[in-house]
Design a protein around this nucleic acid. Structure first.
Lengths: 347, 347
DNA sequence: CTTGACAGCCAAAACGTTTTGGTATATAGT
DNA sequence: ACTATATACCAAAACGTTTTGGCTGTCAAG
């Protein structure tokens, strides 16, 4: 199909070596030869065969991203935004992005192993870290490059970017307490996700500082989907003493919870406060707009990818670990509208 | 790092050829040799170097997917689900999925060209087709394999999967008319997306059959995001004769429109009906639940990918073109609740 | 015996690059 | 006139596979 170095060599009467070096702008090739080679390459529409190039360089110039999905019907605006960040930055540096999906488990780890051993990727971006993270343990063990979005328990000597979930949840907790809430419940994902743990700690801290507790009955499990938020909120409403505030650990569940409340004829923000976490674009345009904690997901994707690229290029990586300060986005779902500067908030 | 054929050859005392053929189960290798080779390969943890394999086979075993994004902050549950479908099916057949993002335009086409010429991918999945689609024109011209989700104007001789948007919108239109609506407005994306055109035609047909029209003033442009749905709905509400029904061309805009209505103190379904298109998971758990047209996005992703794999393997592709019948999902946002069997619908 | 078929093996070429370690010629320095 | 240096070029090896087109030895058939 497309031209090769050999063909250009034939047409210019030079050797393959010279052609290769001319195109790579080595300075042991004369200016005229370079010009000639480039012209012919241009004419033939030459593009290097990446497979050959990569084989020779023993680098795949590819970054791997294996998205941990739960069900098959996987739909999370969080990921598409993160993916865009990673993808754009990868492209900017000439890296490919190899994406696949696998639910957490043994097969997931197999997928990592397979990609490592077949030299399909040069490094990984790890997302949604778990407390005990087999992926990270494996990659660390064999010394394979990766950058994580999130932390794990234990040795934290690997490069990562994370948002301070403890602090983020403290902001939420304090805000709700200041608004007068005392019966606060939360919608949390399974505790093997470390961010869930952090957010729970943050919420507990905020409550404790005001002499409040979070009983087990006020923690309802969900799987981060809107649907599970909906169902969990329903269960909360059916309890003997329903909460006055529902703290969801992500926006999707918060949106589901709001729908549940509204279906019961309750007014979100007035009857029950609801908060989220992530600040997906939808949060701003829900009804009522969702009070949440902002995570710059697109930016995080870019940063994680950039760090990985530096790692792959043996460049200095400073800082190796980034913890971003969260930002509270007060909107109406928490009821601040009743007394706060709502008009401005809403823009 | 990991073992090569050469190393196995050295250890078994066989030639590289024999080792290669033993592992590939050729029948000009004796059973004992095969066993020996396999044992040693196992011991060394041999995994073929995919780059070398692909170079030799002149196939990348990789499927390309370039997602057309508008803004940088790209967040669409539609795509994450589609992606999961394509990705899972690709993995099942041993193909890699190479993902990148590019806003429509010249650079986007460059990206396609680059991936074709550098032999980075064997075929493409094209998504969100446009009326005049430069991507499709290019790939067809050079005879490069691809399967599209969606159609284009003109020659329809390429393989695709699509949902019948005309029919889908007719269902919506008829449903609304049956509910008594006469002043119907719609929220449409720019008309260069062919599906927008189809849906518009469908809506017009439904209206025309009841002697109604869709004046230009009743068509408001959006960019498929929740935000633009919100803004467009606001504009509609400010018009002299606001519509009684808003037909959004996708769910995200519909959700934005609902938020706008609610912010104005209107009750969705009672004061104004709202409908969407896509049936993303969120549609079922919004408040009120969104009446929309179901597209089996995950399944479509799988199908498109499977068709492409068959194409790449020179297998029979029947049918080459799939048009799926849409399914109306009646929920409450259209106001059916006021008179319909709502309790069952909601499960 | 020869011939032919067959089983089992392998050297070498190929895929398209980059890199290594040269050589040949011209120019400058002494 | 001889060395040293710079300039311009290139053959061959290498990356790790697969495939092609053999070769050798054994055994059965003629």
């Amino acid at each position: 199909m497309s031209a090769t170095l050999k063909e250009i060599a034939r047409r210019t009467g030079k050797s393959i070596t010279t052609v290769s070096r001319a195109l790579a702008d080595y300075d042991d090739v004369s200016a005229e030869t370079k010009a000639l080679v480039r012209r012919v390459a241009e004419e033939l529409g030459y593009t290097p065969n990446l497979l050959a190039q990569r084989l020779q360089k023993r680098r795949s110039e590819t970054i791997g991203l294996i998205i941990p999905t739960f069900g098959p019907r996987f739909s999370d605006p969080f990921f598409s935004e993160f993916l865009a960040g990673v993808g754009n930055m990868a492209a900017e540096h000439g890296y490919d992005l190899l994406v696949s999906t696998q639910p957490p488990g043994e097969r997931e780890l197999q997928a990592y192993r397979q990609k490592v051993q077949s030299r399909q990727v040069d490094g990984f971006v790890i997302v949604r870290t778990r407390r005990q993270d087999a992926r990270i343990r494996y990659l660390r063990e064999i010394g394979f490059p990766f950058v994580a979005f999130g932390r794990t328990e234990g040795e934290l000597d690997f490069p990562f970017v994370d948002v301070d979930g403890i602090q983020g949840m403290r902001l939420i907790g304090e805000h709700l307490i200041r608004l007068g809430h005392r019966r606060i419940a939360c919608l949390a994902p399974p505790a093997d996700l470390l961010f869930a743990e952090h957010r729970l700690i943050g919420l507990r801290q905020a409550l404790a500082e005001h002499g409040l507790e979070l009983p087990d009955s006020a923690i309802v499990l969900g799987d981060l989907t809107q649907k599970s938020g909906y169902q969990a909120a329903m269960r909360l409403l059916d309890s003997p003493q329903p909460p006055t505030a529902i703290v969801a650990f992500n926006d999707l569940m918060a949106l589901g919870a709001m729908a549940a409340l509204q279906e019961r004829g309750l007014v979100v923000g007035r009857d029950v406060a609801v908060t989220g976490f992530d600040d997906i674009p939808m949060a701003e345009h829900s009804h009522p707009p969702l009070t949440t904690v902002h995570q710059p997901i697109y930016q995080i994707g870019k940063t994680v990818c950039e760090m990985l690229v530096r790692l792959l290029r043996d460049q200095e990586l400073a800082p190796r670990q980034v913890i971003l300060a969260p930002k509270l986005m007060v909107r109406q779902s928490c009821g601040a509208s009743a007394r706060g500067p709502v008009a401005q908030e809403r823009r």
